[in-house]
Design a protein around this nucleic acid. Structure first.
Lengths: 341, 341
DNA sequence: TTGAAAGCGCTAACAC
DNA sequence: GTGTTAGCGCTTTCAA
């Protein structure tokens, strides 16, 4: 690997001149001729800055960590792209991690956050709000943005319009004529659940509909938890005619449980889910969903940490553009007249 | 952040003594008493080694990159875990990347591989075999292991028993009485496709069955490509009674296309796929799959690069333990007597 | 406009 | 057993 001084030797100048030119510091006064010679030498030697040298000197790694509950969860695809696209603009690299790896006391958490490898952290805690404690020490020295978890407008948070998204979904069901609408939510500890539940309730109230508390669950956002929720909602004698599921993965579980119980979707039951992903397109029936602005959340969250890395003051981010968008597929249908015995 | 010399000052010893104790070099002769004092001081100051300092000095970052085609692809969950579990044993961190980010000439590729950030690369090229060219320069200086792509036994490769996996799947169909068996493969450029196709053909041959070339496709491993494949196979007049799909994601697409075409699974068509994932459990009907040893592949691949980082000679890895395992769900059934008109 | 030199935190060769 | 010291590659004062 060629170093700065290799380039300097070849160009016949000092290392400092090379450094100034190649890291194109704005206030660099170098003659055009030397500049050219340096650039040519660098090209010829295929010079690449050594990240360790640079990081050691500047106390910056030019890396941010993006930690999400489940790397393989399709709903985060867009988030990752948003963060990466914004990061590369500012010469930053994104290091991905899993929320479960940063439990308090975990070796990986220390290696990732405690050794100067990253300049900032973007964290989606998922159903593990206590990981926020695990990074408290880090947060005192470096910028942290919590992604769509804690209450909106908390400093250092970036949130999505969960409530509006939920209302969009529920409104769709109401417009189809449904009145007995169930809610399959996340765990109570997950702050997004409160927002989605509240969206559900306010939209029901706005339509003058009663919420039947037997028709709500709070098991979680995974497919298995969706199965449990559906089993509970569909086995009683007061069955809903439609369900709003607060997460698309849980909705996949709801669909499969419904099938096992002999409930056809959408004939006997309409299902609409929050978040869109390829699994929703390919389920059976294809799921009606509400697409949330994850890409934009990622971009804006990176921009925020980038600002803070450069010393500006924290703000809180609320992404409401684009607004949640209903994608109608085949899991929802107009309420049909109840079967007469 | 406390540094080595802070710890040294507090313990009243030299930095080198501290370095020796804290990086527990094996041949360190230090009195128990000083060792204790140093450890205590480190604890009190919450000392953490600075990765840049260490990397600069030792020309090692203690990070490996794991690059896969699609971070959100559920079949890679186990791979990631395998690599991470092995890495943490040796004090290594895993940096995840996407194959599409290391296209030749991509800025991210250079940042990730060209600036000394990682000591080795584990690469799954997926349907982009040309990315192997993009990392050729890197491969000359640092260890690279290609994960289940190039031909088995290539130096620096780690492969899975694709052929055996394919045979296991096809054998299952044959045992259920199927004879007109289709094959939904990956793109021809993807070397795993050749192995899976070959497994398909040899198992057919072993049972004395003819392969109908109209019943094979090579569109790719994604759900959409599975849809296209199924449309082609199921629209002709020589319809197969069973299909072996070389990838579980494509199989999801096959299921949804079959449904649209009014072909019921498993009554009219049995479907078995290579690789297992949560989406297979939650599809309808739940997919019969063959689970491949991704976790073990990840572990062994890390062990291999770790050996090579330490200067040992490259070997090629073939993971055949555990063997591919058939997981029977509900997408396969015994061939029923053909409908009589 | 350019160069010399200090020093970021760490390891290891060498000296005591 | 323990300390001194050079130097990894880089940026940035300061001086010329």
């Amino acid at each position: 690997m060629a170093t700065l001084s290799d380039v300097a030797a070849r160009a016949g100048v000092s290392v400092s001149a090379v450094s100034r030119v190649l890291s194109d510091a704005p206030e660099t006064r170098v003659s055009d001729e030397t500049r050219e010679r340096i650039k040519r030498a660098a090209r010829e030697l295929d010079y690449r800055p050594n990240s360790a040298g640079r990081a050691l000197r500047s106390a910056r790694s030019n890396v941010v960590a993006l930690v999400v509950p489940d790397l393989m969860n399709a709903i985060f695809i867009e988030l990752v792209r948003g963060v990466e696209d914004a990061a590369i603009q500012h010469d930053y690299l994104v290091l991905m991690g899993r929320t479960e790896d940063i439990e308090p006391g975990d070796e990986r958490a220390r290696k990732l956050l405690g050794e100067g490898r990253v300049d900032a952290l973007l964290l989606q805690p998922g159903d593990r709000p206590h990981v926020v404690d695990a990074i408290a020490g880090f947060a005192q020295t470096k910028p942290v943005v919590i992604l769509n978890s804690v209450e909106a407008n908390a400093p250092g948070s970036a949130t999505m319009p969960d409530e509006a998204g939920a209302r969009t979904a529920v409104r769709h069901l109401i417009e189809l004529g449904h009145e007995k609408i169930g809610f399959v939510g996340g765990v109570p500890e997950n702050p997004t659940n409160a927002r989605r539940a509240s969206g559900f309730r306010s939209e029901m109230a706005a339509a003058g509909l009663e919420v039947d508390e037997h028709l709500t669950t709070d098991f979680g956002y995974t497919p298995d938890e969706g199965v449990r929720a559906a089993e509970q909602l569909l086995s009683g004698d007061r069955r809903p005619t439609a369900i709003f599921v607060a997460n698309v993965n849980a909705a996949i579980g709801v669909l499969s449980a419904a099938r096992r119980l002999g409930v056809s979707v959408p004939e006997d039951l309409s299902v609409v889910a929050l978040h869109d992903s390829w699994t929703a397109e390919n389920s059976w029936p294809p799921l009606t969903t509400v697409k949330m602005p994850w890409y934009e959340l990622g971009q804006r969250a990176f921009d925020e940490v980038y600002r803070r890395i450069r010393g500006e003051t924290p703000t809180s981010i609320v992404v409401d553009d684009p607004a949640p968008r209903l994608i109608v597929r085949e899991s929802t249908a107009r309420l049909r007249a109840p079967r007469q015995p």
